[in-house]
Structures are given as C-alpha cells and as structure tokens.
Computed example of a mutant assay.
Amino acid sequence: MTTTLAIDKLQVSIYKDPVIMGHGAADFVEEKLKEAIHRKGFANLILATGTSQFPFLEALKERDIDWKKITVFHLDEYKDICDRHPASFRKYLKDRILDAVSPKEIYFLNGDAENIEKEMSRYTSALKEHEIDIACIGIGENGHIAFNDPPVADFDDPKLVKLVTLDDDCRNQQLGEGWFPTLADVPEQALTLTIPAIMACKAISCVVPDERKAKAVYDTLYNVIGTDCPASILRTHPNVRLFLDQGSAIRIDH
C-alpha cells in the first residue's frame, strides 16, 4: 500500500520498500517521457547517480520506452576523474542503464576535461538547447540536490553549471556508500548542474530511499525553505514527485 501526501506543491509517495518505490518512480518517469514524445516527437531527460538510484534505474530499464527518441543529460561529475574510474558518474550511468537502452543522444559532463571552463560552457549551451522534460534526482544526507551542498547552494545562481567544493558531509557520504577506499580519495571538487538548472525542468522525480536520508527528507519537507537544506526548494516547483521508502519516511507523520 502506498501512502501519499502533499507538502506545499510537493507530492510525496511513501512505499513499503525500495524496490516498490523504484517501480513507482519508473512509472512516473515513463509517463512524463511518453507525454513529451507524444507532444513533440522526442524527450529530454536528466539522470542521477548514487546507491539511492539503483532500484529506480533497474525498474526504468524494464519500461516500454522509445529510447531512440530520448536525449540524456546527467547531474554532476567529479573533477579530475576519468570515465573509467569506478566512482565516475559517467561510468555508473553507462553500466547501469545507458549501454542497455541506447538513447538517441547522450551529453556527458566531463569532469576530467582539459579546460574546465570550456567544458562548463559546452554543457551550459547544450542545456539551453534542450528543454528538459523530466529530471531524475535524489537528496543527499546533507540535503543537497546534485552537488549543491549547503555552503555553495544558490537558489538564484546565474549559472546552469558550475565547479563546486564539496563539503565534509557530502564527501563522507561518498565514502560511506563505498565509492572510494578512504576519505582522502574522495575528490574535493565536482562539476554540477545548479539549482536553477534543476528547477527549470518541466517535471522532477526525486527518489530517496534509506533511513540515513530521513533527516534530510524531514528538513526538505518541514524546515524553512532555504539553502541550509537545498532540497527544500523542491516544495516550490509545480510538478515534483518525491518517492520514499519506509526508512527515509520514518520521521514523517503519515
């Protein structure tokens, strides 16, 4: 049984476990992609990474989606990590979904580009040329969306893509999820889509399982909307669904 509630403009769905949650999110994303394809003949999609996205991406691969009509972007990438590194988000997406579904086109954010400013400019131009029909994102343990950690999050950021310094909570999360052997190996900087870039998307699917995210989920839903919890801005978007499991929803009165 699914529990649903609304906080401001944000629609929240709470599922029994991460697998069922992943299928719920995949249904929502499939619907938005098919609506866009029916309306204009193609769709533009942003995908997220991290362990929180595993059940969703597995479910999305099973959906009857015409991937040859879909252009894919992603949220972020570590600076100075190549696409063969085990923690690379480009590698993650290729291994977990993109190689299997073969989209029409993929725009990767290259964190190891020789000229980072030029790379950010290239990606910014590509985003401006492609109105995003749906962004698939998560929420970090520190409340970030993409790599917009509290110290660098800006709801009025003039940029669509920027280079950021990761805060300690964010780097410790990457270590805790097993992407790096030691904290010293976790990069200190990353390229990320900004909050305005995410909020400009026509729809947003936000998948957040696991009890370790419970505080961030609570802050997103009930704290003052502000950069202390960057994800709180999602409450102002007209078409966002937040997908939770019992662990991440444990602090919510439902």
Rank of each mutant, 00 (worst) to 15 (best):
N148H: 03
S125T: 11
A249M: 02
T4W: 01
K213E: 13
Y123R: 12
I14C: 14
D157H: 10
L242S: 06
Y222V: 10
C201M: 02
E35K: 15
L183G: 02
G50V: 03
P209G: 03
Y92E: 04
K94D: 13
H144D: 08
A184F: 08
G41F: 09
A43K: 08
L98M: 12
D169C: 04
S88N: 00
I65P: 09
A153G: 05
C82Q: 06
M120P: 12
K34E: 11
E188I: 02
V164K: 05
I204R: 08
P151W: 13
V217T: 15
K68P: 07
S125F: 03
H38L: 10
I250S: 15
S125L: 07
I106Y: 11
I65D: 03
I145P: 04
P196Q: 02
L60G: 05
D149M: 06
C206Y: 03
Q173M: 12
D95E: 14
F147T: 03
V152M: 15
N110I: 04
K202E: 06
F73V: 11
I46W: 03
A190D: 10
H85T: 12
D219C: 09
I132W: 09
S248Q: 03
A197S: 11
V240R: 00
E30D: 07
F73W: 07
D66A: 08
L57Q: 08
I97M: 15
L33F: 09
S232N: 08
E77G: 06
A87W: 05
K202T: 05
I233Y: 12
P238E: 13
D168V: 08
H237K: 11
S248N: 01
S102V: 08
A6R: 14
G140T: 07
K104I: 02
R63K: 15
V29M: 04
F56E: 00
I195D: 06
L221M: 14
G176E: 14
F73N: 09
P238D: 05
A214V: 04
K159Y: 14
P196N: 02
T4A: 07
L183D: 01
L45A: 07
I198L: 13
K32Y: 00
E105W: 05
L242V: 08
T3F: 04
D80M: 05
I65E: 05
S13A: 13
L93H: 08
T236F: 00
A153C: 09
D66Q: 10
S52W: 00
D112F: 08
E114M: 10
T194I: 00
R171F: 12
D76M: 04
D167C: 14
R241V: 07
K215M: 15
V29Y: 01
F42S: 10
P230K: 01
P18S: 11
C82S: 14
C229L: 05
R171N: 13
T194C: 02
A153P: 06
W179K: 12
A126L: 15
I70C: 14
F243L: 00
Y15T: 01
D99S: 12
R63F: 06
A190R: 11
I132R: 14
E119M: 12
L163E: 15
G143I: 01
T182C: 10
K159I: 03
Y107H: 15
L75E: 09
A135W: 04
P151H: 10
I14Y: 02
K79D: 06
L33C: 13
Q173H: 06
V208N: 01
K104T: 01
T2R: 15
F108I: 02
D156V: 03
V12H: 04
I7F: 13
T220K: 00
